[in-house]
Design a protein around this nucleic acid. Structure first.
Lengths: 337, 337
DNA sequence: CTGTTAGCGCATTCAA
DNA sequence: TTGAATGCGCTAACAG
């Protein structure tokens, strides 16, 4: 009794016509009689015919699927990016296969392999913190799978990328602190990766330069982004003779850990110490003392632009590698709370 | 110059053997000469041969992909669930196609259609708040696509489901408040959906019953989960002659909005008013006054169990609907902070 | 142990 | 305007 899934072959049989005619009718092919076309479409609708995507994928050599690789989904930041990617993909009738690298290089490579095997048509990726080489991505060229990097973009030539420049906002952020009277602004940086541009630091220096303020190297500390790492970094700042009165934190996690630790140390937030951060988590609005300002990096927008770029690549009948590498740079914005 | 993707046909040609022999060699088929096998595998490796998944999917009538439908990815809660699903899927060499309903019924239906078209082998879903009927899911039976509901499970018979019971933890939560001396515990409930079991409310009543405390209906208010809705609900409580001294909040969002509003109204948290909640967001640890306790619902575990159940269904050679419906119920836990 | 063959569903080229 | 035939890459039934 189990009705089997209808195929064009079955439709053809019932109508006593050939499968190619059915195929054409369903595709509104120009050379097809109106009568037959109507007939076919009517029956197809009645039978709830739906083309077998796997057959089409196979036949066309395309999966109508793009791969999206992210460090993780837990950060709202990346969730927003996903929404952007999904939006554009849906508009193009594409599916999105998501993989999390969990900031682990091997895992990233593994996911890439899975996606390659799955024959995704293209890939959008924000690389893991561990990713210090991009051979595994470069390999994809052999398979003609275009790759667009976004947000966390490797510092390499000959790639397509979309990212958000933090340089000017960082300058804005530090200058905001200067204007508020802070003389010693510390910078709590993340792990140094050779592959990512260090715009935060550059902006930090530039802001000092513009304001003729000397940079004290001891005010630049590093955290591995863990709670403990951030606390250690903060301790280092507290042990200075000339303690900072403000901190530029690598991101909101660092900012929150810093603020929490500061409170534990009986420091008055926004009085003894002010914090400015990156990312602009919505959750910070629930805090009694959120960072006084945040650099917004527009993850949704980045996702959209990256995916649009990918589709542009997909739709370009690649005449053997003549596509110029495209690198889109958005501008971040300092949001003062 | 562009080397084309190697196929078994090409391997066969180069080795002057038949494609079926190659296929067998690559699959470690029992009836194959060791010598030929080695030969084939060696060449395959050299050529970087990789089976064309789309061809296999087509041939086997399977995509080795499961669909995962969630209300949204922004909530860490669901991100954790994803990790659970992903984990089990990977162990079974399956891919996961993720879709967000954004708590919108039409969107949920659309996603379902996309996934059906994509011929996913099975679906794991946490339904949207709007989902008041599950016809669109029942339809999938015709396509022999098994569905496992989890977390937000429709209140319907004949479904497979995994969810986390809140009943006992709710009793624990309310009793905790009683023990702390609270006499009037309010319950701020979410939108009433006919399709979801209302265990929170049941537990709320039971706790009162067990403690011989009368339930005052005016202490039960409803929020649509928006910030404003929660504030209105809270206002209602504040306008009572007999104000509550504690609140059982529908979830952490409601709890945070409540706490924030309470502070705005100059109420002292944990003194004038205490809050207990569901979900247990990690972020609450950054708050000065987090909920004093949270009901943990183990989203990761739920994702794992739901996916395991799905694979059980997939691996059961369905002898025409003889599979008994399975409903796994986990137990939540009250975490006191 | 190995080769031959058929066929999955569809789009498409060639012929009528 | 329509039909017949082909083939995408792979698996598996059947034949040797």
């Amino acid at each position: 009794m189990s009705e089997k899934v209808p195929t064009i072959k079955e439709i053809a049989r019932r109508l006593n016509i050939s499968i190619s005619t059915v195929s054409r009718a369903l595709h509104d092919h120009p050379s097809i009689g109106l009568r037959t076309k109507m007939q076919v479409q009517k029956l197809a609708a009645e039978m709830n015919y739906e083309p077998n995507q796997t057959a089409i994928q196979f036949k066309q050599g395309k999966t109508f699927t793009i791969g999206l690789i992210l460090p993780n989904l837990m950060e709202e930041y990346f969730s927003l990016a996903i929404n952007g990617v999904e939006q554009v993909a849906l508009e193009n009738n594409y599916n999105v296969l998501i993989g999390q690298s969990h900031d682990n290089l091997e895992r990233e490579q593994k996911i890439l392999e899975t996606m390659r095997r799955h024959r995704v048509d293209g890939i959008v990726v924000s690389i893991s913190k561990q990713t210090n080489n991009i051979e595994h991505f470069e390999q994809l060229e052999k398979y003609k799978i275009p790759v667009v990097f976004f947000d966390r973009v490797p510092n390499a030539p000959n790639i397509h990328s979309v990212w958000c420049s933090l340089y000017y906002s960082t300058i804005d952020a530090v200058e905001l602190l200067f204007r508020k009277g802070h003389k010693r602004v510390a910078y709590m940086q993340g792990p140094l990766s050779l592959n990512i541009k260090n715009e935060r630091l550059e902006g930090y220096y530039e802001a000092h330069k513009r304001n003729k303020a000397p940079v004290s190297e001891s005010l630049i500390v590093t955290t591995d982004l863990s709670k403990e790492g951030t606390e250690r970094a903060f301790e280092k700042l507290l042990s200075l003779k000339e303690k900072p009165t403000a901190i530029l934190a690598f991101n909101d996690t660092v900012a929150l850990d810093t603020i929490q630790y500061a409170k534990k140390k009986k420091l008055k937030i926004d009085k003894d110490i002010s914090v400015v951060s990156y990312a602009n988590w919505p959750i910070t609005s629930y805090l009694d003392f959120p960072p006084i300002a945040s650099v917004e990096q527009f993850p949704y927008e980045q996702g959209v632009r990256a995916t649009e770029l990918l589709f542009k690549l997909l739709n370009t009948k690649s005449p053997e590698g003549s596509i110029p590498y495209e690198n889109v740079v958005l501008k971040s914005e300092l949001i003062v709370h």
